[in-house]
Amino acid sequence: MNPRTGSFPANPSQDAVDERDDGKERLPTDLNQEPPGGGRAAVRYRRSKTRWLVLVIAIAAVVWSLDGTGVSFASLIEGWDNAREILAGLFPPQTDEELLRSVGKAVVETLQISIAALFFGTVMGLLLALLMAGNIGAPKWISLPARWVATVFRSVPELLWALVFVAAVGLGPAAGVYAISLHAAGLLAKLVSEQLEAVDVAPVEAVRLTGATRLATAVLAIVPQARNNIASLVLYQWECNIRSSAIIGFVGAGGIGQALGISMRLFRYEELATLMIALLLLVLVVDQISRFLRRRMGAATR
């Protein structure tokens, strides 16, 4: 008798069906049927198998790369005598007045290169990022070329850009500014566009429902949410510009890197040590300024 209807079921197995309908999992009556939870176990097994496969491939890639590049402790031991000779030549650093005056001039030039390149790179990078971000909604005939341009800018290293501009405008810091600006613009375009696309969609949709245009939606709902992260990226790019200016100086693009290249080619190791210390101090100062500005913007720095 069915307790809910007060009648006998037409089918003798109705009670059993009702009991199975109470929402509880029971072992299957068919031995060939997969037990409850078997699907989840299979998924976990496949995921575990995939992780082990990825780990094996990664280890094999590292071993293959080390073998192909000839990296080993033996090579370091063989080159220790040359390294010791260079390190010994770095001490004590040269500190005569004329050298310090020239080092100070190179440091100032490096700082100028980094700031000017940051300005041009940020302007171009933010413009490209606004055109690239999917939630901004720029037409494809604009967003796709912007993405291609940003890819070209960041794919070419600053050193190669510096060679191009040294050949175009001649030796000096102007070539360094142009070279770093293009690479910084491509990098910022990618990173900033990803920050714009990662914002909360609720405020964006709320502004769009008011009938706001794409530009107004970007200015009022998208950019304000990503503002702090964008500022942090720009400040980090400034630190990168300092280091990049030291590298492109080796090809005559001005700054402290150019002085470093001359000292290394002439084997003036004591002068080289002074330049390296000056570059280190410059990077540390810029890092502290960056941390201070990020702290003022609410970043959790210590």
Rank of each mutant, 00 (worst) to 15 (best):
R44Y: 10
M124K: 07
N135K: 05
V123C: 15
G79M: 08
R51C: 11
I77N: 07
S143C: 10
L99Y: 01
Q112K: 03
V43F: 04
L131Y: 04
A60D: 06
T122Y: 00
M132I: 08
K49A: 08
I142C: 15
E98C: 02
G137Y: 04
L100G: 13
G104F: 03
T122F: 02
A116K: 01
L55Y: 03
G79E: 15
G38D: 14
V107C: 01
P28H: 03
G79N: 11
F153W: 06
K140A: 13
D81N: 10
E78F: 01
V56M: 08
N82W: 03
T110D: 11
V43A: 11
L66F: 02
E109M: 04
A83F: 04
A106V: 01
P93R: 00
K49G: 13
L131T: 05
S48D: 07
D30W: 05
A116I: 02
T95H: 02
G39P: 05
G125P: 07
T122N: 09
G70T: 05
L99N: 08
G137R: 01
G125K: 00
K140H: 11
W52H: 11
W148P: 13
D67K: 05
V56I: 14
E34S: 15
G134E: 08
A60C: 13
G89W: 01
S72I: 02
T50Y: 12
G137A: 14
L31N: 06
M124Y: 09
V56K: 09
K49E: 08
E85S: 12
V152Y: 08
T151D: 06
K140I: 08
T95L: 02
A41T: 14
L87F: 08
A88T: 08
I86F: 05
L87M: 07
P139R: 00
A61C: 04
L53S: 15
N32Q: 07
A41D: 09
D96L: 00
A106H: 00
R147H: 07
F73T: 09
L130E: 09
T69V: 14
Y45F: 07
E98H: 03
K49T: 06
E34R: 04
Q33T: 14
Q94E: 10
T95G: 11
I142A: 14
A116N: 12
W64Y: 13
L90I: 00
A129I: 04
R44I: 04
T50V: 12
L55T: 14
G89E: 09
R46P: 07
R154I: 10
P36A: 12
L126F: 05
S143E: 13
F119P: 11
N135R: 05
W141P: 02
L130C: 14
K105P: 07
P36E: 05
A74E: 15
A83I: 02
T95W: 00
T122I: 00
G70N: 10
M124E: 10
L118A: 11
F153S: 08
G79S: 09
F120T: 09
G89K: 02
I57V: 15
L144K: 05
L128F: 14
N32E: 10
A129V: 03
E78L: 06
G68Q: 13
G68S: 14
I115M: 06
I142H: 10
P92Q: 01
D81C: 02
M132Y: 08
T69P: 10
F91Q: 11
I142K: 04
L128H: 09
G121L: 03
I115L: 07
F119K: 01
G104H: 01
K105Y: 13
N82S: 15
A138R: 00
V107Y: 01
F120Y: 07
G121Q: 06
V54Y: 11
L90V: 03
